[in-house]
Design a protein around this nucleic acid. Structure first.
Lengths: 351, 351
DNA sequence: GTGAAAGCGCTAACAT
DNA sequence: ATGTTAGCGCTTTCAC
């Protein structure tokens, strides 16, 4: 009964060692339907029969085959989470929250990185299309850069999808909307309150990155609303690394342009890079240079002085995305929901 | 043909909107067997037929149902990775490396946290047993604390399993063995070279944690080999957080026992906590207090002065675990392999 | 090179 | 309360 290698008429063989529902049924002297009912807690099975079945399941070490179950039910209790990277405080925080939320909702999490950058389009596409989507009950996707193809692929999928995005116009899908603007404006105004506009700087991440775009725009509009005309050197783009922050600060310092600055960094890492470069160069913070980071990762409480930063609701993003997904799966007909999450300044010691 | 809600004799209905292999076969005027061959790149299908099939697949947007495929092939191209937590540099590094390796090997990664602590045994068990194991082609499990039940569950599973462990005796499974001893000894000796043994401290993580056990033992044996008798206050346990490090240092400082110390911390976070507390208390590092961390996370390059630490091959752990798993899946008969990864001191500026 | 047909191990009517 | 049975959508012989 499944314990022996067998050949049927068409030569299809059972897997040796695998215990099937039929084996349990035989052992418990019931039909497979009854076993199935016990497994799924369905209908009323006689208490005594159920006990017999459970004993058999236990004794044989039976585990239902999820493939077979899924084939009928079309459910796997698996959720996908696609983010640009798995590393660093930022994604790490989202991921952990998502995992916890998924568990709470009775799901498991399949993580995958997908390169937001639309570079070798074909390559990114493969990554995404290799995803065993039909095995997933739903999928949350975080969009940080333009990436038409892969996105299109997901968007047009029949799968329940939740987007983590900045763009409120983002289609008819459930969306977690993150608003960088309020926090970035707040930070800029805060900086402006003690430093002249011409000494303000924005040192951002990748120019194509949606967050960076939104953050820099907010920075610029606050200044322009105050009638301050920006010089090109006041807004720079690089990447989300400490090295970039340090490099920027070193260059600014050697041009004699760092002292007296108040800088809004694209994220906490960049801010940290700027801080170390400034401090290594003998500048004090916030005395000579004021710095505000972005994201409110744990990093910001680790620096000395502790970094003022714009809080990103990272855990909330992960949690909401999964909750939204679970809701969507439960009710596929519900109209698309938009969850708005906002950012705000956390004043600490560097500003 | 799958595009309409239908009822068969037993009332089983097709999913509306789902394109099946039969639909493709019909459209391409071939049998489903041929479509299957094209999908799987099998056998020689006439070049022209294949083209026709591919066109139909494309046109209909057909995606093979993974459940059905898995039911026959017993393969999902999904790997599980179970770690105690998903957060922080430590796990984050492992996870990213594992994800990359999995992708390279043609797999996707299902992550799950499982509480190493054997606390509410039943609860942990449920977490693990709710894992859709039969959906996975294999699983890598990181063990950091005793947890008999859940572990037993996984160990006895028929699934290919790779253990990430410290215990060389860890059974007949493939194992990534991490040796904390060499690094911890090296660090202790390094500290000892400029600080008297009675001023050495070990400030570890949770006492039950395997890493902490191994690290503290190495610390103690080096001292005892030198004929130094340890006082109880020289080895303390807490948790892997900066707060614990800070608390320890503050208490030591207020007992007047911090200055002159050389401490080996259980991880970089603890080390960082100790550093900040010492610096806040007006002590200089490494002048008044010498500190060595553990793990060589990015944190260690972020502190000022930069933290000496014991390098843990985190990326290597993730990569090797997945590679080993892939190898095991490819050849289930191969004899269990043990991959030994070791640790070593990275001298920076705090010691 | 292609098709027919037999299942893989389940779930869910339907019947009793 | 339990059994019978028809598939779910694929892969894989085997025959042609």
């Amino acid at each position: 009964m499944g314990s022996e290698q067998q050949s049927g008429p068409a030569g299809v063989r059972k897997l040796a060692g695998a215990v099937s529902i039929q084996d349990v049924a035989d052992a418990a002297q019931v039909s497979i339907a009854t076993v199935s009912r016990v497994i799924n807690g369905h209908q009323l099975v006689a208490i005594e029969t159920a006990a017999r079945v459970r004993a058999a399941i236990e004794r044989l070490g039976f585990r239902p085959n999820r493939f077979a179950q899924g084939l009928m039910t079309r459910k796997s209790k698996l959720l996908g989470l696609a983010v640009p990277d798995l590393h660093g405080e930022f994604y790490s925080s989202i991921l952990r929250a998502a995992d916890t939320a998924a568990r709470k909702a009775g799901y498991h999490l399949l993580v995958t990185t997908f390169d937001g950058t639309g570079k070798p389009a074909a390559e990114g596409d493969e990554l995404i299309s290799s995803l065993p989507m039909s095995l997933l009950d739903g999928m949350a996707v975080m969009i940080t850069e333009p990436n038409s193809r892969a996105l299109e692929y997901i968007r047009t999928s029949a799968l329940p999808v939740v987007m983590i995005d900045l763009d409120p116009s983002g289609g008819d899908r459930d969306t977690i909307l993150i608003d960088n603007t309020t926090g970035a404006r707040e930070a800029t105004e805060h900086l402006l309150s003690a430093t002249p506009g011409s000494n303000l700087r924005f040192v951002g991440g990748p120019e194509a990155n949606f967050d960076t775009v939104q953050r820099s725009r907010a920075f610029m509009s606050v200044l322009s609303e105050r009638g301050i005309t920006l010089r090109p050197d006041q807004v720079r783009f690089g990447d989300y690394t400490m090295e970039w922050g340090r490099r920027w600060a070193q260059e600014a310092a050697s041009a004699g342009a760092l002292k007296g600055c108040a800088v809004l960094a694209g994220n906490d890492e960049i801010a940290w890079g700027i801080m170390t470069a400034a401090q290594d160069g003998g500048l004090s913070i916030p005395g000579d240079v004021r710095v505000v980071g972005f994201d409110d990762t744990r990093l910001s409480t680790l620096t000395r002085p502790r970094l003022s930063t714009v809080h990103m609701p990272l855990a909330q993003i992960g949690t909401s995305a999964i909750e939204l997904l679970a809701r969507r799966i439960a009710d596929p007909q519900a109209s698309p929901e938009k969850v708005r999450l906002s950012t705000s300044l956390v004043k600490r010691e560097t500003s």
